[in-house]
Simulated assay, not measured.
Amino acid sequence: MAAGEPWTGEDQEHNDRCHARWLASVNRSTAQPDHRDEWYDAQCGGCRFWIPLSGELGQDYGACSNPASSFDGRVRFEHDGCEGFVLRADGSFG
């Protein structure tokens, strides 16, 4: 990116570093042995309060806007989840 140009978020190295760093804060990893089956249907990307980021990072990440969640105002991985999950009325994901 040239000096003075607006940031677009389309820097692959930067995005890869963010992805690795942000995965460290996942609440419910499917790789954990105690991951419960019902959590597969209650992932952030299917919550009515999940707002996807724009650009490439928005394919996997969004902001939580649920005032009942401890993650309100934080960037979350679309496959993460929490106790404040609310299913989208249309059943969409992402």
Rank of each mutant, 00 (worst) to 15 (best):
E13F: 04
H14M: 10
H14R: 09
N15G: 01
D16T: 10
R17A: 15
A20R: 12
R21S: 14
W22N: 01
W22V: 06
L23D: 09
A24K: 14
A24Y: 03
V26D: 03
N27L: 10
S29G: 14
A31K: 13
A31F: 09
A31Q: 12
Q32A: 14
H35N: 14
R36M: 06
W39K: 03
A42Q: 15
Q43S: 09
Q43M: 13
C44D: 01
C47Q: 03
C47K: 00
P52W: 05
G55M: 05
G58K: 04
Q59S: 15
D60W: 02
Y61W: 14
C64R: 00
C64M: 03
S65V: 08
S65D: 08
S65H: 11
S65Y: 06
N66S: 11
N66H: 03
P67A: 11
P67M: 12
A68R: 09
A68S: 12
A68Y: 06
S69V: 01
S70N: 13
D72F: 07
R74F: 10
R74S: 14
V75Q: 05
V75L: 13
V75K: 01
V75Y: 04
R76Y: 03
R76A: 02
F77G: 00
H79K: 12
D80L: 05
G81K: 02
C82M: 02
C82A: 10
C82D: 03
C82F: 03
G84P: 00
G84Q: 05
G84T: 00
F85D: 03
V86K: 01
V86P: 04
L87P: 00
L87S: 08
R88Y: 02
A89P: 05
A89Q: 11
G91P: 02
S92T: 15
S92Q: 13
S92I: 10
S92H: 10
